[in-house]
């Protein structure tokens, strides 16, 4: 079953001088359990595509369904959890209460909220930090809290918009492991925006290479890497070959310009 289906998707922003074509004729399907990375340089529309799926950006034309519903209905049905480029935690709430925020909005009873938060924090190795406040945590931990928050109401789909873009490489590797572990355990359908080739190859079952001006899909690369991956897989010839393929696809779109 396909969780996301996009057909001839166009998104045009009306800028002051001339309209900007953010996405042009994008076709994409994401199946249940897929981990899909959207990769490309700035301006290729990868974030816009993710925002369109989340109903945070309006479509200009084309067909887009999420869980068989319109993006608007899917959002109303709490179909997805969204992880932003920055953690976007509420500094006046401690870690646990940040994670329970969406549950409060759903009017879940308090004991259940607490239990759910504890589970999700444990899933990301944050079980001892529930009473800390966001500004007492490192950037990487903050982003883990924001992932725990996105998972708290058990959405069918996890959308992540360059969640680790602002972090150093060591922290990033660690978080990639966390995300991979999470996906391996839950097989939660995920869409992940990045501009890091190793990150995309490491995490994905499917890599969507995009190119700017206008934003479009250049190529979709299926990964045949095993489901269980460790950081050492990056030395594996298969991994290297896949990364090479992604790099060539990016170059094809002249998207290094």
């Amino acid at each position: 079953m396909n969780v996301i289906e996009a057909e001839k998707l166009n998104i045009v922003f009306n800028a002051a001088d001339q309209p900007v074509v953010a996405l042009k004729d994008v076709d994409l399907t994401v199946a249940q359990g897929d981990f899909v990375s959207l990769i490309g340089p700035s301006g290729c529309g990868k974030t816009t595509l993710l925002r369109a799926i989340a109903d945070l950006a309006p479509l200009t034309s084309g067909r887009l369904t999420v869980n068989g519903m319109s993006p608007d209905d899917a959002r109303r049905a709490h179909a997805y959890g969204y992880v932003f480029q920055a953690p976007a935690l509420f500094p006046w709430r401690n870690v646990t209460r940040n994670v329970t925020l969406p549950l409060e909005l759903l009017n879940m009873p308090k004991p259940e909220r607490a239990q759910r938060a504890a589970e999700n924090l444990a899933l990301l190795g944050l079980q001892d930090f529930g009473r800390k406040f966001p500004w007492q945590l490192s950037g990487g931990m903050q982003q883990r809290v924001s992932i725990a928050r996105a998972l708290s109401f058990k959405p069918a789909l996890l959308l992540m918009d360059e969640p680790f873009g602002a972090l150093d490489e060591i922290t990033r590797d660690n978080l990639n492991l966390h995300v991979h572990e999470l996906w391996r355990r839950t097989h939660m359908t995920s869409v992940f925006v990045t501009h890091s080739i190793p990150e995309a190859v490491f995490l994905s079952t499917k890599i969507v290479v995009m190119s700017p001006r206008p934003g479009r899909v250049l190529r979709i690369i299926e990964s045949d890497l095993p489901a269980h991956r460790t950081l050492e897989i990056r030395e594996d010839p298969k991994f290297v070959a896949l990364a090479q393929e992604v790099r060539e696809a990016l170059r094809e779109g002249h998207s290094y310009d």
Binding site: L56, R76, Y80, Y82, F84, A88, P102
Partner: peptide, 20 residues
Amino acid sequence: MQLDLMRSYNATGAQVFGKL
């Protein structure tokens, strides 16, 4: 981003006011 977050949760206007 905080407002988008609340929108992603389909929060009502009153919830956005009260919680954010």
